[in-house]
Write a protein that binds this DNA or RNA. Structure first.
Lengths: 215, 215
DNA sequence: TTTGCGTTTAACAAAATTGTTAAACAAAAT
DNA sequence: ATTTTGTTTAACAATTTTGTTAAACGCAAA
């Protein structure tokens, strides 16, 4: 053993994440997950006790991962616009991996509001709180039209997340292949920045810088 | 019967729509729907043959209703910005009734892509096609920063729909009651207009005008 | 009244999904 | 070699969910 210790458990989580967050199969059965991972269905119960508990685990992990990325950007030193550019990059790139994550959160928590409360109660500061001060500076300096931190943050979330959420719909309407969709998302980074700030996105953050952050 | 002819069928559809599109119970069972409508489960099969077919019916109806509203606005005569203001009003107001509709579409069609193709194939023109000409005029006249019709329309969709999609999440994070959420959505109409056009939203469309359109 | 028709129901059947258990298996420790 | 420990499996049981059917009901027309 040793080497394979948590191997299978990891494999199951990985494949489940793919089904739910990458392919948007919101109602994947334990059997389908087992098939995807090439293992027996009972194994899922061996490692996670129940389907429910496995779901909670992978959801928790994935949300935490994304939230950590966001926090580290919003809490970093640096000027406001660069931070926001970084935010856009990070969210959109994350969405390239897990386009349906937000969608999953939304429907999962519609059914189990207590889970959402638990998730939210863990971080004391909302992301809008983390940008409020710098945002107000920007506005005071006349570099940005007046807007509350909440609306600003929701604008940004909306512009970044919606194209991910609606992946299937957008691809079908505009007849995009997967490659075309990826290209479209990359374009969108600039569009989002322009829409929010009404000016071109600076080249920073450089790709190497992004790589570092992502690691 | 006569009077009660399609009474029950309508009731079932109504209640199902509430469960799915208003409350976000994406996996509501036929039993839950029956309970909600205060009728026997078998009735649902009597009227719709199967759960699947009932789902298709109410989804079709609701999408069509929303698309008709959008089309009538985009195809109406009138200047570009007023149309867009009307669009924002309409989408957000529709979302007050059915916040989880988009969410439902997304996850339903992730599982059954052929349904999405069917829905999309019915209208030959995408909404981005309907605004392209006027949008380009605005840009040519220097009243709007250059942007493709696709990105513009997706920006608008994102800003309008995301706060609806994420209703539960937003309410929980910001501790909003239902009343507070409604107020927030109304505020957002102006925010969206400002974000897209970088200027205040005109008072038009007047409330009466909106009422007429909605009817 | 009773006949007929659409509606509604309860009871049953079938299928799908989840959860459990005991036994087989493999690799490391004794 | 055999015992131990953790892993994997197949077979079974329980539950949930969907779909079917035959009979009861109520109202309108004959």
């Amino acid at each position: 053993m040793g080497a394979e210790e948590a191997q299978t458990e990891k494999l199951i989580k990985e494949k489940a994440k793919n089904l739910f967050f990458k392919n948007g199969f919101l109602n994947a059965t334990t059997q389908e997950i087992a098939d995807e991972a090439g293992i027996n269905r009972a194994l899922i119960h061996y490692y996670f006790r129940s389907r429910e508990q496995m779901l909670d685990t992978i959801l928790d992990e994935t949300i935490l991962e994304k939230k950590e990325k966001i926090r580290s950007i919003l809490l970093s030193t640096g000027n406001f616009r660069d931070k926001m550019a970084m935010y856009i990059h990070t969210i959109v790139d994350h969405g390239l991996t897990y386009p349906y994550l937000e969608n999953f959160i939304i429907s999962e928590t519609a059914r189990h509001p207590e889970k959402l409360k638990l998730i939210c109660s863990r971080d004391k500061l909302k992301s809008s709180d983390l940008i409020r001060e710098q945002l107000q500076e920007e506005i005071a300096a006349g570099r940005l039209a007046p807007i509350t931190a909440e609306h600003f943050m929701i604008n940004l979330s909306a512009l970044c997340n919606y194209p991910l959420l609606a992946k299937g719909v957008l691809q079908t309407i505009h007849g995009m292949t997967d490659a075309a969709y990826r290209k479209f998302l990359v374009e969108r980074k600039r569009v989002i920045y322009r829409t929010v700030f009404n000016e071109e996105m600076p080249e920073f953050p450089a790709k190497e810088e992004l790589q570092k952050r992502r690691a």
